Simulated assay, not measured.
Amino acid sequence: MIFPSGRLVHVAAGFSVWAIIFALIYGMQGVGCRLDWDKVILFDTLSLQRIQLVAVYVVGLCVLMTIYACLSKHKGGPEQKAPRRFVTAVAVYGALAAFAAASLSFVGVMWLTAC
């Protein structure tokens, strides 16, 4: 079999985590607005809403960077067959692209109004 299932899971890992981060941020934004967490000030001007959204963002970026680092360690050498090296490279660069996409698409939680 050219594409063992483990490698295909690696290819999908980065953007699957991106989708989970998206769902968490979007869901927590809705819950926080409904429960008025944006009005609960914890530190100076930081609301409970902002803190939990930033926490999801930062943890998500850490998970994506960990996925990228783990996949990068397992890059195949010349002893691997070409299809396996290709799928591994797609997985590594896909994880890096997911990190970049999350970094740019969710950075608004840092300053945009939550509700």
Rank of each mutant, 00 (worst) to 15 (best):
P4W: 05
S5E: 14
L8Q: 05
V9P: 01
V9W: 10
G14C: 01
A19C: 11
A19W: 11
I20G: 04
I21F: 01
A23Q: 07
L24E: 15
L24A: 10
I25T: 05
I25Y: 07
M28L: 11
G32M: 09
C33W: 09
L35G: 03
D36Y: 11
D38W: 01
K39T: 14
K39A: 09
V40P: 10
D44Y: 10
T45I: 08
T45Y: 09
S47M: 06
L53G: 00
A55I: 07
A55V: 15
Y57T: 10
V59K: 12
G60C: 07
L61E: 00
C62S: 15
I67E: 01
Y68N: 00
Y68W: 14
A69G: 09
A69R: 05
A69D: 06
C70T: 00
S72C: 03
K73A: 06
G76Q: 05
G77E: 08
Q80D: 13
P83W: 03
P83D: 15
F86E: 14
F86K: 15
V87Y: 03
A89I: 06
V90D: 00
A91S: 07
V92G: 05
Y93T: 13
F99L: 15
F99K: 02
A100C: 12
A100T: 06
S103C: 02
S105K: 11
V107S: 15
G108H: 11
V109K: 10
V109D: 04
V109M: 05
M110D: 03
W111Q: 07
L112K: 13
L112R: 14
A114T: 14
C115N: 13
